[in-house]
Design a protein around this nucleic acid. Structure first.
Length: 264
DNA sequence: ATGGTGGCTGGGCCA
């Protein structure tokens, strides 16, 4: 079972790149973020023709998250699960796909350490942990995929000295991420790939991709009970090349056994 | 270089 997460930075602008990547890689489940569209224009039919069910939680101009699956998609929850106070933006959607609880998240950026958006980000991370608790037990089969807008360690940033006083690397953000993991989640890519300076995002500006100036801020976090089934994890940096790329690339994990039963 | 690029939009915000 191949699960992927990808901040597509506008599904309208990225649809051709996304369908091409899906056709080539055939993920069983893909979490998307920043679809930047209303539910009414989400291209469900396009994905259906490719064999995928889909669920989208959009708001329009900004944010928007989705899950597409070809191994079943049930129990869809938009926004945080009850009784958590709902977010005023479309940043989280959950579903069950082939016995795995899958959550697609777009964690707030934070903007700057002084900004109210930064407090909102930290609060949002607390609520994400509550959400995990509401829909699964730490012993359960849960994967949270998404753009966390947090680089957990200095190894996840090209040059941390460029980030003094900035978001994404601050101690409170990293503590919030560590707290979420301490609930019972593992950053699967990091577990399998200890090497530093492997990134999932590069700024469009300044030729950042060409210069290797990126960050690893997109993750698939899995509960312990799934770790024994993990065969592989990857970051497809090729997706940052070519015409009209997103500034993020897909992150993937492969779980053994549990999808083949559904495929004829 | 107080810049740069890209995606909303339709001027300026957001990332």
């Amino acid at each position: 079972m191949l699960i992927a997460t990808w901040n597509v930075n506008s599904l309208k602008a990225r649809l051709e790149r996304v369908t091409q990547w899906v056709n080539e890689n055939q993920p069983d489940v893909l979490c998307m973020q920043e679809t930047k569209m209303k539910d009414a224009v989400f291209p469900a039919l396009t994905f259906a023709e490719m064999g995928y069910e889909s669920a989208h939680f959009g708001q329009g101009q900004w944010n928007g998250v989705a899950i597409i699956s070809k191994v079943g998609l049930t129990d869809v929850v938009t926004n945080f699960a009850e009784p958590i106070a709902p977010d005023h933006e479309a940043r989280i959607i959950s579903a069950t796909c082939n016995g795995v609880k899958v959550v697609s998240v777009y964690v707030p950026n934070g903007r700057s350490l002084e900004d109210d958006h930064y407090k909102y980000k930290l609060e949002w991370m607390k609520k994400l942990k509550q959400h995990a608790d509401a829909i699964a037990k730490p012993s359960g089969r849960l994967v949270i995929g998404g753009d966390f807008n947090i680089a957990p360690t200095d190894d996840d940033v090209w040059d941390v000295t460029k980030f003094e006083g900035a978001t994404h690397v601050s101690a409170p953000e990293r503590e919030a991420f560590a707290d979420l993991c301490a609930w019972g989640l593992t950053d699967v890519f990091r577990q399998l790939h200890p090497e530093p300076k492997v990134f999932s995002w590069w700024d469009y500006r300044n030729g950042s991709f060409h210069k290797g100036e990126g960050m690893r801020i997109d993750f698939l976090l899995a509960t312990k009970s799934l770790l024994g089934e993990v065969e592989a994890s990857g970051i497809d940096r090729n997706a940052r090349k070519g015409e009209k790329p997103s500034d993020h690339v897909p992150v993937t994990i492969t779980l053994k056994n549990i999808s083949t039963k559904l495929k004829k």
